[in-house]
Write a protein that binds this DNA or RNA. Structure first.
Lengths: 149, 149
DNA sequence: GTCCTTGCAAAAGTTTTGCAAGGTG
DNA sequence: CACCTTGCAAAACTTTTGCAAGGAC
């Protein structure tokens, strides 16, 4: 299911290279290394984690490059960020069940009370190796303020 | 709908005070101020934002206190954190639709391919003031490794 | 050769920790 | 008055930015 073999990785990296050329960005060894590292795992690593792994065989790479490269890839849609709101912790005193919508640009968060999103029933189930405690649905889009400016 | 008036806030703060006593934590002016600030908005503020607001009328409060207090509240279930994975950006090269499960303790992220979670269809809709681009479902629980230790 | 990309260093921003003083129960 | 909580300072950690050198096309 989630097993990734050598051939799949090679294929993904080749697709990445083709796509980069289409998009007009330069294909550097650093970019290939970063993409390959991310394509080789289903662990959703942080920037630091990717950096450390690459450093083993590419000791000169800079952490700054990894940051900048991941941002570039994400903006071009080559990869995605699991947690849009990684900039700072956000709290909520409202404990009644509801979901959230995040503005991709200004990072504003608003509540959503929408019945079509309340149909999931996963609490207290077991999924894979996990005891599920809860879930959160984060919609994303662009808010009116950001569209207007 | 999402309008919060003075009376609701007072009520929430009183509940908070009662609950704090039940839980055996001390009710300090700082804690009341922090809880009240959070209960007075549906904006899901960051620690810094809460700090700045309180500082207007409580100039001696420390940012450290706000950090520590929010953590305390969260661990006791008095409030919740919107974004569990706020510690660092996490990336994913797998662009096929899937969801994620996060271990609350070690912050590990794994992929979920579960059909019962794939029934949401919100793309390209408009919800409130937003053009929806997509959504992510983040289940949370405790992984096997963390349960065992 | 042009211009995008990289690496270094420094800065900005977020969160955590140690410790003494202070306040709640 | 015991002990939890606070505030300050410092450190740890994550991310961003400026600039000159380097490399892809």
């Amino acid at each position: 299911m989630s097993f990734i073999n050598e051939e799949m990785i090679r294929e993904r990296v080749n697709e990445f290279i083709d796509r980069s050329k289409e998009l007009g960005i330069k294909v550097t060894p650093q970019r290939i290394a970063i993409y390959k590292e991310l394509a080789s795992t289903d662990q959703h690593p942080s920037t630091e984690t990717i950096y450390k792994k690459i450093k083993d065989y590419y000791p000169n790479i800079s952490l700054t490059t990894v940051y900048r490269t991941l941002e570039t890839f994400e903006k071009l849609g080559l990869i995605s960020v699991v947690n849009v709101l990684y900039n700072a912790a956000r709290y909520d005193a409202n404990l009644t069940p509801h979901n959230h919508i995040v503005c991709i640009e200004c990072k504003k968060v608003e509540d959503i009370y929408d019945e079509s999103l309340s149909t999931l029933d996963v609490s207290d189930k077991t999924l894979g190796d996990y005891h599920i405690k809860g879930y959160s649905i984060l919609l994303n889009g662009v808010c009116k303020d950001c569209r207007d400016s």
